[in-house]
């Protein structure tokens, strides 16, 4: 009887898992399949004469749909946003361990900025830039707009990480002769490294597919999401599916590598 109940529970759990996976990945699966549409095929099923035609189109500089510059910009932007977010979140995490004047206010302001609608932030930054006569670029104003999105997440994660941090580790390091900088370098940062890694990864992904905040302030050159949107409103071809497939596979690959690194470093510290 007990075994039967366990099996039932396991079956139920598996069913939920399958439904959840379908819900997450079915839309992508449709795009993945349609990316292999033949030259004469349309945007919808059926799939006619499967080919790599649209993937070729993707890297053909003569075609309208050369996304490589946009991908380059988006990757650079995401790397920079991720680096800044990681460093600032670490600093904020260190600072928030002490109560300083206005720390509570600063905390709520940080969280509050997450609920301001994204397009409003973008328009606001646009207005300020034109008021001050600053030219809007993807590496300037758009970076700023994205940081308003990535920073609060990064800070929240680091607050959680530091809430589990054992301060006696730092005391022990000082006791053994470390100065402030050595404590940070040899103890604090290595101990919170998995958290920093998570912040870097999340802020990279948030920045990479950010649309609403970047839309108004990116200037003349588009990031990948903006380019995609523009391309879709201009002419619709299965190129967009090919592009979606390539970028998604790249992202998944990056995630798998990142997770593997995380798991390895976590395993090293646990029992064999």
């Amino acid at each position: 009887m007990a075994a039967a109940r366990v099996t039932m529970a396991a079956k139920g759990r598996n069913a939920v898992f399958v439904v959840f996976s379908i819900f997450l990945y079915a839309p992508f699966l449709a795009i993945f399949i349609l990316a292999f549409q033949g030259p004469q095929g349309g945007l919808n099923f059926p799939l006619r004469d499967p080919s790599l035609h649209w993937f070729h189109d993707l890297i053909d500089p003569r075609s309208l749909s050369d996304f490589r510059p946009a991908i380059g910009r988006s990757v650079i932007l995401a790397l920079v946003a991720s680096a800044i977010t990681t460093i600032v979140s670490l600093a904020a995490g260190l600072a928030f361990r002490r109560r300083f004047t206005g720390s509570a206010t600063l905390f709520y302001l940080t969280i509050g900025s997450l609920v301001v609608p994204s397009s409003l932030v973008s328009i606001g930054i646009g207005i300020i830039c034109s008021m001050l006569g600053i030219q809007m670029t993807w590496w300037g104003s758009a970076l700023g707009a994205q940081l308003t999105w990535t920073l609060p997440f990064g800070v929240l994660i680091m607050l959680a990480v530091f809430s589990h941090f054992d301060r006696s580790l730092e005391e022990a390091a000082r006791d053994l002769g470390a100065n402030r900088w050595q404590v940070l370098r040899h103890v604090t940062i290595p101990v919170v490294a998995p958290g920093l890694f998570a912040v870097a990864l999340l802020s990279f992904m948030l920045s990479y597919d950010e649309f609403a905040r970047t839309a108004v302030v990116a200037g003349s050159e588009n990031t990948l999401p903006l380019e995609l949107f523009a391309f879709m409103s201009l002419s619709v071809s299965p190129t967009i599916y090919a592009l979606g497939t390539v970028t998604t596979l790249l992202s998944i690959g990056a995630l798998v590598i990142a997770t593997a690194v995380l798991i390895r470093s976590a395993n090293r510290r646990r029992a064999p």
Binding site: D166, S168, L169, E171, A172, A173, R174, D175, L176, G177, A178, Q182, H186, V187, P190, V191, A193, R269
Partner: peptide, 30 residues
Amino acid sequence: SERGTAMMFQSYALFPHLTVLDNVGFAPML
């Protein structure tokens, strides 16, 4: 570290990211 004292903490405060050898060698490393 300049007092001629060394402390053993209640939680031991061993550095989780370092091996036992590197933990023990922490002071000379510095």
